[in-house]
Every structure is written in C-alpha cells, then in structure tokens.
C-alpha cells in the first residue's frame, strides 16, 4: 500500500495546498476524521475547525470554516470556504469577531439568527484554537 496520498485544499479564490501527505486530520461535520493512505472512499461536509496534515514528518496546520471533502484511497480533496495557515491567523480579529458573535447571540430572536451567531462563534473559536496550538 502506498505510504502517502495526494492532498489538495481548494478555496473559492485559489488552490492553497497540493502536497503529498502521510496523514491528515479533517474537521468533519460529525467529528474529526483521521485520514491515512488507503482510506475508503468517503464524502463529507466539513465544519469549522482545524485541518492538519503531516508531510515529510512536518506538521502543517490550518484553520478552516465551512467546507466539503472527498476522500479516496490515494487522493483527498478539501473544498474549504476559507483556509488560513496557522501562522497567518489574525488573533486580534478572531477575538473581536468572537466577541461580536457572542453579542449577537444574546440579541438573537429567530432560529436563523441563533444559528448564524453560532456559526460565527464556531469559526472564530476554530481560528483561536489553531493559532494557540501552533504557539504551544
């Protein structure tokens, strides 16, 4: 069995990553998925969270918002609405938008407002988590 698989991370704006990876962690809607070469074909929606992969022993971390992934035995493609490399994350901005989202959650009236605010909190939290883990 092959020891690596091809990983692609694509955003609406550009191709962010095309690399061969030994393993990857992706934030599935229903929980994190660990992917190793030879994984069964799988399609999943992704939530906000951390996406990381190991390539040549080096760990790469990204924060992502909503996305979608196709896993094949030798190929993983991630469509992500936004992706930020861990060291590119603007901490101050993430904290600000977290505070804003918490504020709008308090004033939320409809079901929609609540889920919108929750989504925003999730995204901001994911950024903060990834950034903090990178530093530790």
């Amino acid at each position: 069995m092959a020891e690596t698989f091809q990983l692609e991370i694509v955003t609406p704006e550009k191709l962010v990553v095309r690399d061969s990876a030994e393993e990857a962690q992706i934030p599935g809607r229903n929980g994190y998925l660990g992917v190793l070469p030879g994984h069964a074909p799988l399609i999943t929606e992704l939530g906000a969270g951390e996406i990381s992969y190991r390539s040549g022993g080096q760990l790469h971390r990204f924060a992502m918002a909503w996305g979608f992934a196709e896993v094949l035995p030798d190929h993983v493609t991630v469509l992500a609405e936004t992706v930020e490399r861990a060291d590119e994350i603007d901490l101050a901005r993430a904290q600000r938008s977290l505070a804003e989202a918490e504020e709008s959650l308090k004033s939320a009236r409809t079901e929609e407002d609540v889920s919108e605010a929750a989504g925003k909190i999730e995204r901001a939290q994911a950024r903060l988590d990834v950034s903090q883990r990178q530093q530790s």
Binding site: G28, R29, N30, L33, A40, P41, L42, I43, T44, E45, E70, L72
Partner: peptide, 8 residues
C-alpha cells in the same frame, strides 16, 4: 466510479 461512504 466507487461506492462512497456518505458521512451525511
């Protein structure tokens, strides 16, 4: 042309 597992 494979049988995907659909997480959702």
């Amino acid at each position: 042309p494979v049988d995907y597992i659909y997480e959702q």
